[in-house]
Design a protein around this nucleic acid. Sequence first.
DNA 1: CTGATCTATCGCAATATCACGATCACTAGC
DNA 2: GCTAGTGATCGTGATATTGCGATAGATCAG
Lengths: 106, 106
Amino acid sequence: MGLSKSTAFSERENKIADLAKALAHPARVAILDFLAKQDVCICGDIVDQLPLSQSTVSQHLAELKRAGLIKGEIEGPRVCYCIDRAAWDDARKTLSQFLADVKKCC
Amino acid sequence: MGLSKSTAFSERENKIADLAKALAHPARVAILDFLAKQDVCICGDIVDQLPLSQSTVSQHLAELKRAGLIKGEIEGPRVCYCIDRAAWDDARKTLSQFLADVKKCC
DNA sequence: CTGATCTATCGCAATATCACGATCACTAGC
DNA sequence: GCTAGTGATCGTGATATTGCGATAGATCAG
């Protein structure tokens, strides 16, 4: 039907899949890369860095925010996005654990 | 347009996004979990383990195979799927590196 | 060869994603 | 108040994904 049967899977599996979905687009990977490279939490010059329109970038930012990986603070007329350290650490642990667990084979 | 502008991003960003996409569904996470738990490389009892039809599971397996994370060997009447160790290690390194790199903030 | 079993693929429908331009909402300065 | 700048949201179209049943191919048992 096109609807992901998320209810049928474990909490953990859904969490991993959800985090992976947030990373499952090169634009979002690029955004995270960019945020990581800036020591100052720079705002929406992200739009200038990407070959995408402002509205599209905004959507990708919203998706990253939905996944909890970044957060935005209003700073005057602009918005300052940065990586949510706590959430990112949690996500990193969850994914790393999964990546490490899966290794046995035939 | 609905078409991901993959050409506009770096090789690395596309690789990360592609790997993440393969993990971006709970069913595929569950499949990898299951394959990891079996010391013997068990085949398509995966279908029995998941609340999905045989054809749907086959599609998820194909997607994982497309990403190069698993490989299937024909064993008589059945097919034996297992994690592609080399590819998985490579994927693990790529993703872990990315997860580790992104940490600075405001 | 025949039937049973396992898996891949096809065809379809419903939904999600991606991308864009246009527009709305908010803030700061005049 | 008005204007300019910034960013979110709306509306749209095109493409991708998810899911299933039905069908086809391949292999073994008899």
